[in-house]
Design a protein around this nucleic acid. Structure first.
Length: 348
DNA sequence: TCTGGGGTCCTAGGACCC
DNA sequence: TCTGGGGTCCTAGGACCC
């Protein structure tokens, strides 16, 4: 049995290019003061996501810069709806990618059909990886990019798995990789001598089990329904950190308003929160965080704005005299009664 | 070299209960 | 009152992903 990992290429940029076919094939970036998405011709010049725009323009002076303008959320929803037409189950990984279980249909035929439909109907290039487990399907799509299709057969899987390096593993970041390197492990095959008890002392219980399941080829091969969103947040980084109270207040009000707006839109307007988290990062990179449990779950914008402002005052940021770099407000969503249960039920 | 904004999940420790 | 073991809930922070 195989599953698919389908991933729209340079999603934000591809969505913008639908209105600018004249720019196809040229180096294009969707950017504010940082790059949010870069086309493959731009990537070929060293431009990538999260790069400051100035730096991108130094690397690639002819870069075409587009402001983020389109409704990416809607584009992502259309993409997921398209996936569902070919699927028994879809597990979104983000706005623009998903694992897909195509049931009894031939997975390669489905992958080809999905790619064609996304191109014809949505104008989006989608790369698909086909393999037995999620990890390998994702690896396949990564290797097939851009605008490709790669199948890893079960025969190829054995060979490929033996050669996997730690830094190729999805879910293993710099911290875990460096802990493993200190223990003498840079390839999956080098885990041969480890049992769970020993590996646990290096990377913790959950990560140890995941790594051993990858070594033993028993890693996750099930496409699952995912639950409703659990948090809604907003944050802003100041271009020029200030310690003046009017600046901080304006910064905070902007973030609070955005977070409250997003809460109002979440869960089809039915979201409630019973918990607020406020985080402040000062220009010296020191963090400060406070949590507030609410007496009753609410979505009342006025109450939430008032509570958030109280937290700002309680933070002491007004009198601290230290320049503020980042403010973040996060609402933990209250589970809507029965929503988890509903999600666990089969779809008829 | 940590540069952005939105998320999820894990871990460790404390409080509290039986 | 203490000792031990187990469970749950909460909080703070870390790690990771796109």
């Amino acid at each position: 049995m195989s599953l698919l990992h389908a991933d729209a290429d340079c999603f934000f940029a591809s969505v913008e290019l639908r209105h600018r076919p004249d720019l196809v094939g040229r180096p294009v970036a969707v950017a504010t003061h940082i790059v949010m998405s870069a086309t493959y011709p731009a990537r070929g010049r060293g431009v990538h996501g999260a790069m400051p725009l100035r730096q991108a323009l130094r690397l690639c002076p002819e870069l075409v810069v587009l402001p983020p303008r389109a409704d990416y959320q809607s584009a992502g929803e259309a993409l997921m709806a398209l996936f569902w037409r070919y699927a028994a189950q879809v597990e979104p990984g983000s706005m623009e990618e998903a694992f897909i279980d195509v049931g009894d249909t031939d997975p390669v035929a489905s992958a080809t059909a999905i790619r064609r439909a996304a191109r014809d109907e949505l104008g989006l290039p989608v790369t698909v990886g086909v393999a037995r487990t999620k990890l390998l399907a994702k690896l396949a799509s990564r290797r097939a990019k851009p605008d490709g299709l790669l199948v890893i057969t079960e025969a190829e899987e054995v060979h490929l798995r033996a050669g996997l390096t730690i830094d190729e593993l999805w879910g293993v970041g710099p911290t875990t990789a460096s802990r493993l390197a200190d223990a003498g492990v840079t390839r999956v095959s080098e885990l041969a001598d480890f049992d769970e008890a020993r590996l646990r002392t290096v990377v913790g219980t959950t990560m140890a089990r995941r790594l051993l399941s990858i070594r033993d080829a028993t890693d996750d091969a099930t496409v699952r329904q995912i639950g409703p969103r659990r948090t809604v947040s907003a944050s802003r980084t100041a271009m020029r950190p200030s310690n003046r109270w009017p600046d901080i207040q304006a910064h905070a009000d902007g973030v609070i308003d955005l977070a409250v707006q997003r809460l109002a839109a979440a869960h089809d307007g039915q979201a409630l929160t019973h918990h607020i988290n406020l985080q402040i990062t000062y220009a010296d990179r020191n963090h400060w965080s406070i949590d507030l449990g609410l007496p009753a779950a609410t979505r009342d914008p006025d109450e939430l704005r008032r509570r958030c402002r109280e937290l700002i005052m309680a933070s002491g940021v007004r009198t601290a005299g230290r320049p503020v770099l980042l403010i973040m407000v996060s609402f933990r969503l209250t589970n809507i009664a029965g929503s988890r249960l509903q999600n666990a039920l089969p779809l008829f």
